[in-house]
Nucleic acid binder design. Structure first.
Lengths: 245, 245
DNA sequence: CGTATTATTGACCACTCTCAAAAAACGTGG
DNA sequence: CCACGTTTTTTGAGAGTGGTCAATAATACG
């Protein structure tokens, strides 16, 4: 719960026309990629990098939305709660993803670190000025939000219309794409999230998640070296299941 | 399926500093509200108003995303399909709402008119130029997308964690807010969507939608003059059910 | 007015949830 | 490093919400 703030204004190693943030290894995916040297300097003046410990809350739903964040390293989950404790995880975020967009000045969801996480934090008021001056940043933000929206639509399809088996298959394929960038080979996935997180992401219970993974194992689709690692044995079959055919 | 295009460039009745589009009665909610006279003239040059017949498809998921749309009047539904025909309605849109945002140049969902609809259509390439010149428009678009994203998160919570009863209650309260702007009194809602649309929006079957509405009727929460009209008798109780308590 | 479509109601069933216990993994201190 | 307690995951048995299939009723439409 105690973010270790590290000012970064003084680090101005980027004088080249094309610079990269240097705090992350995102390359062209980073928010700051493509900025000119002087723009990048101003960008650094607005940004503050913060380290967040595992399982600590970055902000809660309803909090005043003072900052916008991007994930530099690690993973973050977003969720919403019902009054009786039922939870819906709305997204798992990985390096390069934005979060903290607000409606009416309040965050629409809670954000929690799933492990040691490095974040880039932008005060909204300062960022708004910068967005006005550097149209490319605003374009990127709009593009990122649009992308998030498309993912949300995908997730609605999953939650509303897919079976438990299809949900888990979709989840594994998604992780495979996101963490390894490929859907071929037999990648070994490190699950940074608990069964409870997965269940709340897919609209299932932990028991159903566990049982379905066991079924996948028995079908030879995956192997599990341990509870937090999944090796995808038949990616193509899994993909077919995910798409509901 | 045959949109009746009506060029509107010549209609330049707006010479005042603060103008409103004139094609809709949205006031401050309209995309064009707050534009200066010269900006508005350019805005009109980009825009094309189109009338769309009931049940016709504006565009399909995967189509090349050439246009961005706003609803001027009527209602539109967005949906995604699985290969075997299972459908998830991701949103019902009403006057003032945007749609047609794309990822990788393709629409992420299908858009269909639910009745006679008037749309404002913006070619993406022309709009992009205009957005670059009028930062306020880009801000509005970002805000609208952010708002849509928040609604999507709400819907994920509903789809993943709410019971049929809670889903229907949430749906009715949402319609009440959206169509009447209030949650008090005993408003009469005109349902522009079929049971099938409602079911596919809430992740249920038409039978469950029908049964749950009957249960609400028996509980005295609503009355139904006919199948397409619902009078909310106890809005506060419905709201409590919707929030899961 | 007859036909097609949509909505309601009923009976039954199954997928997933709930409750419960066992097994495995994790963390902590001796 | 191991014993211990705690937490997480897995597995099992049974139950319930919502789905499926089917028939009836109501509505829309030509």
């Amino acid at each position: 719960m105690v973010p270790l703030d590290t000012p970064v204004q003084e680090r101005e190693k980027a004088e080249a026309a094309q610079v990269s943030c240097g705090h992350c290894d995102l390359g062209a995916l980073a928010f700051c990629s493509g900025l000119k040297a002087d723009q990048f300097r101003r960008f650094l003046g607005v940004l503050r990098q913060t380290a967040v410990e595992a399982h600590s809350t970055v902000f809660r739903e309803g909090d005043q939305a003072l900052h916008l964040y991007t994930v530099a390293s690690g993973a973050v989950k977003l969720y919403k709660l019902l009054s009786d404790g039922r939870r819906q995880v709305t997204a798992f975020l990985f390096p390069g993803d934005f979060f903290g967009l607000s409606v009416n000045g309040a965050y629409a969801y809670t954000a929690e670190a799933m492990g040691q996480v490095m974040l880039c934090r932008f005060p909204r008021v300062k960022l708004d000025v910068l967005l006005g001056d550097i149209p490319m940043l605003e374009k990127k933000l709009l593009e990122a939000t649009t992308h998030e929206l498309a993912l949300a639509h995908e997730q609605m399809l999953l939650l509303g219309r897919k079976t438990a088996r299809e949900k888990l298959a979709t989840f594994l394929v998604m992780l495979m794409r996101r963490l390894t960038g490929r859907t071929d080979g037999t990648p070994l996935l490190a699950l940074t999230m608990s069964r409870s997180d997965i269940a709340d992401y897919l609209g299932l219970t932990i028991e159903t998640v566990s049982r379905t993974l066991t079924a996948f194992r028995k079908d030879g689709l995956i192997t599990c070296p341990d509870a937090n690692h999944v090796a995808i044995k038949l990616p193509d079959v899994l993909l077919r299941i995910a798409e509901g055919s």
